[in-house]
Design a protein around this nucleic acid. Structure first.
Lengths: 348, 348
DNA sequence: GTGAAAGCGCTAACAT
DNA sequence: ATGTTAGCGCTTTCAC
């Protein structure tokens, strides 16, 4: 409750104490002994006046702006950024921190985003949260040095900055296990063909589930292409056109799954009765609007945003060890979201 | 370039002038005469030292934080919020302002969002930008009084706050005109059934195009229901099942259009050869991933974000008249985005 | 257990 | 045309 014009001296006067005491009790300054009775009086006075500290004055004095910079790629393209923002936002509010957001283009090279980082530095943010829109490796701009930083959805090539990334392997395991438990043994995998962690991780998860259930790995069941709707359609047409077609498809992402839906429809295959499909990403706009709803794996964007702010706070307070954290990226859970695209395979 | 530890006095010393002069030069303070030669010297000194002002000190002194609060509903749900953020962001940067974002739940009642507004006030934002996720009327929280405010995608019930909203009528005109120009005369309209401006505006646009082209209005061609995929499907099934089915469908939004695609497929109607479809919203995730790509109308979220910040700046500088602006919401263009879902009707 | 006072970096009123 | 200086509201050192 910051009512304009009310300052710490007004509170002091009303409580009959000095501004020092007010500052001490309102900030719970450590190593400061203030009588309990006085504390109560001060707090009451503050509330009565609707006092709130002047952030600018605090910042000037303490050299801390209370601002956290969020540098995010492609805010406008997917709702993913929205979830990161939301998670970061809520965590920031918890710690009385304010989120400042800068959008950036997807670029690469060590000097990419340097200007955006500078804009954040000019704003005197206390820390920065660097978010990419898909899981990959990045080189951080040099001017980020010295500013507490945390990465979201990417890992630092130099291995010096803590990062949170989705547990791709775990997500794929959840997806494929769901299919196996429904009774499927011939499970096709429409994978991405980019050399990114998700491509490898999801394949690894797929293989590990087969192995665990003693289902032989059949390389002809794994197709790959660009992770878009059209390639998903083409790949699905191909694999579903075979006489020994799989009874289920695990798709690298929801867009490819959307393509697979179309292929199935064209081939007269009903979902989920003739064909089960699981996607990845949980893009609500797609997954919830397909017929039937697409069972898929959610990416932990909200959680990564929250984790990032929490970690930054602990770093700022010296409660966490950056080197230790940076050693290994923190893996966040990718939970399965069950809709209606999976059923038991035909008895035939 | 804010290099820590460099202050205005360092610049003054290096340039051999007083801090006053430095301040005057760097801020282009009006009514201040400084010799051109001095200005140059000061600017060079500043650049040499990598000087950047301490925002906190500036804020403390001038009572302006340089912060703009963006209160947005449902940041995480659609990419719409992302575009508003982006537009606002870019405009803010232009004016050396920083955007602070607060997410909010969709609520109603005059006290909805009051706490969120308070959070912004506590942050001492200079102005606020209040954005809703779909076009409607709102009552603003009382504590927003006194803070320059601008509305996005909604209008103020009290008629006191300037607002930017999409030109729903114009967008519908663009959509239906496109259909008419392709040769269609029997055009179905799958409308929303909520009592919101978009429902009425898009119907008005639809009717006005028919009228302009002397196509009689046929009420049986206008169906309405909830603006979701499933109702879109059901409505489309119904209207396309008729013997005198329309040759084209204008859908209230892309989700309904997605349902219409499914209905067309099931009925063996090819798009665009047997049926043309135009949507509304330009949700890329849907529109670009449908087969064929959905021709639709884009909502001006980016533009509304930019307009809002520009307007706020002008309000702050006293260059715009709030009352005049608040009188009538500013209409922003909804341009047609042509993909592949429209063709000439069959000759039969 | 409490208070006086210095000073964070800047702007602006006032002098010169 | 340029400089001197007071103070914005707060935290913090030091004195009591």
């Amino acid at each position: 409750m910051a009512v304009k014009g009310t300052g710490i001296r007004d509170v002091a006067k009303l409580a009959g104490v000095s501004v020092t005491t007010v500052s001490h009790v309102l900030n719970d300054t450590p190593h400061t002994r203030v009588a309990e009775e006085t504390r109560v009086r001060v707090r009451e006075a503050a509330k009565a006046l609707g006092y709130g500290p002047n952030r600018a004055a605090q910042a000037l004095r303490t050299n801390r702006s209370g601002l956290i910079g969020l540098l995010s790629e492609e805010i406008a393209t997917t709702p993913h950024a929205g979830r990161i923002i939301l998670g970061a936002q809520n965590a920031a509010r918890e710690h009385d921190l304010t989120l400042v957001i800068i959008n950036t283009d997807r670029e690469s090279g060590p000097n990419a985003h340097k200007d955006d980082v500078q804009a954040l530095i000019d704003r005197q943010v206390d820390a920065v949260l660097y978010a990419t829109m898909y899981h990959r490796m990045v080189s951080l701009p040099p001017n980020l040095q010295g500013l507490p930083t945390v990465l979201i959805d990417s890992t630092d090539r130099a291995g010096i900055v803590p990062a949170a990334v989705p547990d791709e392997v775990g997500g794929a395991i959840a997806a494929v296990t769901h299919l196996v438990e429904a009774g499927h043994t011939r499970i096709g995998f429409l994978n991405n063909d980019d050399d990114v962690p998700a491509t490898h991780g999801r394949l690894e998860g797929y293989r590990s589930v087969l192995e665990k259930h003693k289902i032989p790995y059949d390389a002809s069941l794994v197709l790959s292409g660009p992770s878009e709707t059209l390639p998903g359609y083409e790949l699905a047409r191909e694999i579903l056109g075979r006489s020994d077609r799989p009874t289920a498809l695990f798709c690298y992402n929801d867009r490819m799954a959307m393509g697979a839906y179309r292929a199935a429809t064209e081939l007269g295959l009903g979902i989920p009765d003739d064909l089960s499909i699981v996607g990845f990403d949980n893009q609500e706009l797609i997954a919830a609007n397909l017929f039937p709803g697409l069972t898929t794996v959610a990416l932990p964007h909200y959680e990564m945003g929250a984790w990032a702010v929490e970690t930054l706070v602990r770093l700022l307070h010296g409660e966490a060890d950056r080197k230790l954290l940076a050693d290994e990226p923190t893996l966040l859970d990718c939970p399965l979201v069950i809709r209606g695209s999976v059923a038991a395979p035909h008895a035939d």
